[in-house]
């Protein structure tokens, strides 16, 4: 077990970062969020040329046979760019749900020819996996009910719906995008009304969401890193009182503390990859969610007035960080889970 990045991971990072620098600078993301947030051309290149869509899929099922370490590095880079592509929703969450079934759809997802979304609310968690869903299955295998807050549903060709321990594949169900706090990963309400569905196999939703929460910590690390780097560059440039504002200790000390938070977020994220136990995931998920929000909030504050404007991209990161704080369990949910996992029982508990 190692907490460092491998050479393969660093090479993958550098290809993804290069592509995103070219095709997905913050200004470009900002320009598209109000019309068509999802950048499917970019996704085609990421999935087809760099091959990120099949990272978690074994070679015999048509994937790259890589692992969570590689997926985590891609997520760090996508977080740094708040890139509006369905990697996390399709290539991580939906793919992980599908993997135990070894369904043929995996091959199509691996090539990026199709995308899928797990029809579970982004506000659900490993501890409350059914939150936001009222879907039931009838005797004919048809689905009825709604799921709110589904991320990636608007770009998915296939919805994967967990109901009562089984996973169903649905195509063509109505998906209603709602105005979302996170502009770069909008959520939608999915509605089923006696919708025909194909049963794919068994599904342990809590395990899927736990896996997702562990990897989301790497995306949150990327978000925090961009916010810290961008703020550092700004406070070195911005002059007030005839000095760079980054020379004032009141500013420097805050940035030193944020840097220390980010250092620890990197260690927590790598640990959740190296050891995907419930404890490691809960630590990374609760720590990194808090760090991403804190660094984004401080980035906005330290940019002063410009940070409050629509034209500066820091708000995209704040919105991503705040929405991701809720996604797959809040920091408080994960800490509460640790109480029994590490033996710090609540009052009244044994």
């Amino acid at each position: 077990m190692t907490l460092l990045y491998s050479e393969v991971e660093e090479e993958l990072r550098s290809s993804v970062r290069g592509l995103l620098a070219d095709r997905c600078p913050p200004a470009a993301v900002l320009q598209r969020v109000e019309s068509e947030p999802n950048d499917l051309d970019l996704w085609k290149t990421l999935a087809g040329e760099i091959g990120v869509a099949g990272l978690l899929i074994p070679e015999e099922l048509g994937g790259a046979g890589a692992g969570p370490g590689e997926a985590a590095v891609v997520l760090e880079e996508l977080g740094r760019s708040v890139a509006p592509v369905p990697f996390f929703t399709s290539s991580v969450l939906a793919t992980r749900a599908l993997l135990p079934t070894r369904d043929a759809l995996l091959g199509e997802l691996a090539e990026g020819r199709r995308t899928a979304a797990l029809a579970v609310s982004f506000a659900a968690s490993p501890y409350a996996p059914a939150r936001g869903s009222s879907v039931t299955v009838d005797g004919d295998g048809r689905l009825s009910g709604t799921v709110s807050g589904v991320a990636g549903a608007d770009v998915a060709d296939v919805l994967l719906v967990p109901v009562d321990g089984d996973l169903y594949a649905v195509e063509g169900a109505p998906v209603t995008v709602v105005p979302s706090l996170d502009l770069t990963r909008p959520v939608a309400t999915v509605t089923f009304a006696r919708t025909p569905a194909r049963r794919v196999g068994a599904c342990d939703v809590a395990a899927v969401l736990r896996f997702g929460a562990g990897l989301l910590a790497s995306e949150q690390l990327g978000v925090a890193e961009w916010c810290l780097d961008t703020t550092l560059a700004y406070v070195k440039e911005r002059h007030q009182f005839a000095r760079p504002i980054g020379s004032f200790q009141a500013i420097k000390h805050r940035l030193a503390d944020l840097w220390l938070d980010v250092v620890r977020a990197r260690a927590a994220a790598r640990n959740a990859v190296a050891d995907a136990s419930s404890v490691s995931v809960a630590v990374a998920a609760s720590w990194n969610a808090g760090v991403a929000v804190r660094v984004a909030e401080e980035a906005l504050q330290l940019h002063g007035g410009i940070g409050m404007t629509w034209e500066h991209p820091v708000h995209l990161y704040l919105k991503r960080a705040k929405a991701a704080e809720i996604a797959l369990g809040t920091p408080g949910d994960h800490r509460e889970a640790l109480a029994s996992l590490v033996g710090v029982p609540a009052p009244g508990a044994e």
Partner: peptide
Amino acid sequence: LRNIISERVLGLP
């Protein structure tokens, strides 16, 4: 220590 981090690691003036 915060001064050291901000000046030597983060490159702040």
